[in-house]
Amino acid sequence: MTSSTLAISVATAWLAVGLVVGAALLRRGAGAPAALAAVVVWPAMVSLLASGPALRDIAGPYGAHITAAFTALRAAAADAALAGVLDPVAITAVEVALRQADLRLAAADRLLADPAVAADDGAGRLVSARAHAAEQIEATLRQLVTVRVQVGLVALAGDTGPVRAHLAELAARARALAEVA
């Protein structure tokens, strides 16, 4: 086999694997752009296959609220008049950490649904910890609405520094949460 033939064969094999990876991503609910990208750069996209279902597909009790809150926040960030005020990467980090907290809440709910666990002496602590966690998620969701209001005010005033700094701080905390998880 000549070098030309072998090179063409390897290139064809590359594209074939890319098509398989892209098709697999489509079946798992990834968008068409991600699947198309996978055809070309599949070595960088294979981790999506091993990551399990997309985080937004498995949700705890606050899943729908989280989706709605971040859809609205991203819509605000995408507004041309507010360009550059919010860091999209920080928003994603906060969303991921919030969803993970929501999943942990769901895990606690499943534990409490077991009569044996509910009857245990320590169940009271689990209940109060669960309630505290739920309060924090709800408070964070309310604060996201506040962020949207204040982003508008800050953008008018021209001083975007504090908003970005706070969101960056929140993103850093969110990364710490994700690493611990």
Binding site: L36, L48, L55
Partner: peptide, 19 residues
């Protein structure tokens, strides 16, 4: 900062525009 978006959801969303 973009590179540190390690969550899988970010990879799927960022890969097409980066490419």
């Amino acid at each position: 900062a973009v590179a540190s978006s390690a969550a899988s959801a970010a990879l799927g969303r960022l890969a097409p525009p980066l490419l």
